[in-house]
Computed example of a mutant assay.
Amino acid sequence: CKREGCTLVDYVAAHESADIFDYLAEVWAQMQQTIKNGLENEGVLPGTLKLARKASSYNIKAMQSAGSSRPMGMLFAAALATSEENAGGGRVTTAPTCGASGVVPAVMYFLKHDQGMTDHRLIRGLATAGLIGNVVKSNGSISGAEVGCQGELGTACAMAAGAATQVLGGTPLQIEYAAEMGFEHNLGLTCDPVCGYVQIPCIERNAFVAQKARECAIYALFSDGRHMVTFDDVVKTMMETGRDMQAKYRETSLGGLASVCLKRMKCNFNDNM
């Protein structure tokens, strides 16, 4: 892009079929529908954890808030909405996976409803998000079973941060910086779902990572885009970290929070008996 003087979106357009943006428009429509469904649905998610949905109440509280609490609450609610739809068997967009599907839609949704960005800009942002995700998928891994949650939510954070930076007028260098930070600051993140459900800690993680992606975009936009560690460096480091990670921290529900919470649940169950 630097050599040709083009944007990352130009690069995507040059290497994809002519209907890529029509496809991304469908993706964006589904992301918005999933969030809408998640914000309206209430009740308890399926499974033994009996976890209550929170997106609806978070959204109501966000709309009634002022100052910095309002945008943060909006972002949390949108991420929770998608993640809860995923946990409840609803239709979601893998971005890059189902378990990390709440981050990119939440950030794009926030940019539309809080920042007033147009669908056209957001769809072009999704082109860059997909490009970033494919760099990880092609040169690393997006599988929690292979490299832990750093490969899922770390990639989602990078995708959302890069896309947001572009939508907000960032340069390719600033976009790469935002994506690098989004990935870098999720290195080592384990995949330890309680009881094997993509609910605890997964749903909350999507909300916090969405906020982190927004912060990475803002941070990069304050800079001139120059930085020491490249996105490619972080992809390589993520793979090295994933290979060093014990299997029980890679989507087996045998280590980390999963093991602690399982022991506690078992004790509570026995006490109740």
Rank of each mutant, 00 (worst) to 15 (best):
A78W: 00
H185L: 12
T190V: 14
L262R: 11
P46A: 05
T82C: 13
K248S: 09
P46Y: 03
T97C: 06
A217F: 01
F183K: 10
P105C: 04
T155N: 15
H113P: 01
L8P: 00
F222Q: 14
D19G: 03
K61A: 14
D19V: 07
T118V: 05
C202N: 05
P46G: 02
L51D: 09
L168Y: 01
A210Q: 02
V44D: 07
A52I: 01
M245I: 13
M108R: 03
L111Y: 06
N41D: 11
H113R: 06
F110M: 07
I175D: 00
A14I: 08
E146T: 14
E240V: 09
P96I: 10
Y58W: 10
E176I: 02
M63K: 15
Y197W: 07
G90F: 06
G88W: 10
A52N: 10
K266A: 10
F110G: 00
S259I: 14
Y109Q: 02
I218M: 03
P193H: 09
K137A: 15
V198H: 01
C1R: 11
A106I: 01
C202E: 06
G144M: 01
F269Q: 15
V27H: 06
G154I: 10
G88D: 13
W28I: 00
N139C: 11
N59P: 02
E85N: 04
M117E: 08
A178Q: 02
E240Y: 08
M72F: 10
A13T: 12
I142C: 08
C191A: 13
Q246W: 04
I123G: 00
M265L: 15
T241L: 15
L39V: 07
E240H: 14
E251P: 06
L122F: 03
P201N: 05
L257I: 03
A62W: 06
K50S: 13
A210G: 10
A13R: 11
N41Q: 14
A66T: 11
V229C: 05
N272L: 15
M228I: 09
C202S: 08
E180R: 15
K61T: 09
R250I: 09
R214I: 00
A161C: 08
A217I: 01
C202A: 07
E4Q: 13
R205I: 10
L153N: 04
T165M: 05
A87I: 07
A18E: 15
